[in-house]
């Protein structure tokens, strides 16, 4: 359950990050930002339900988050969303590792890890950063 709480915390953070980053990014990216934000909101809600169903109170979002660097423009906003996706991937990989071989929890965690990794790659494409991929998403 600790791993699942960690994943929920990462989803709360990602929802917050997309809310902040959108303000600094070109309006041409609005649709992709919305899709990503919606995906994290859905994942957050589903994770809260999993915890509640297991009788565990879900962790609430933080009142605020510290960003690794000030977000002042599109480039720093892109780095922030890549960080949020990287953190989400790590949190969900941890759920895969620590949960029993239960297709529901493992399946959801694998899906969330994969989605975060793909979004991170797409944002790296947008940012023009290299490499676009990492061999083991969710690991340092």
């Amino acid at each position: 359950m600790a791993a699942l709480q960690g994943a929920l915390a990462a989803e709360h953070a990602a929802v917050w990050v997309y809310g902040v980053a959108g303000a600094f990014m070109s309006s041409t990216l609005a649709r992709r930002l919305d899709e990503a934000a919606t995906a994290h909101q859905a994942r957050r809600d589903a994770t809260e339900r999993m915890l509640i169903d297991a009788g565990v109170p879900p962790v609430p979002p933080e009142p605020g988050y510290l960003t690794p660097e000030p977000v002042t423009d599109a480039a720093s906003a892109l780095r922030l969303v890549i960080t949020a996706e990287t953190d989400a991937a790590a949190a969900w990989r941890s759920v895969v590792e620590r949960s029993p071989a239960d297709p529901d929890v493992r399946g959801a965690a694998l899906e969330a890890l994969t989605a975060a990794a793909v979004r991170a790659t797409r944002w790296r494409q947008t940012a023009g950063s290299v490499p676009l991929t990492v061999p083991f998403p969710g690991t340092p």
Partner: peptide
């Protein structure tokens, strides 16, 4: 899981 995500 990481390998699957990387392939995606």
């Amino acid at each position: 899981a990481s390998i699957a995500a990387c392939c995606a």
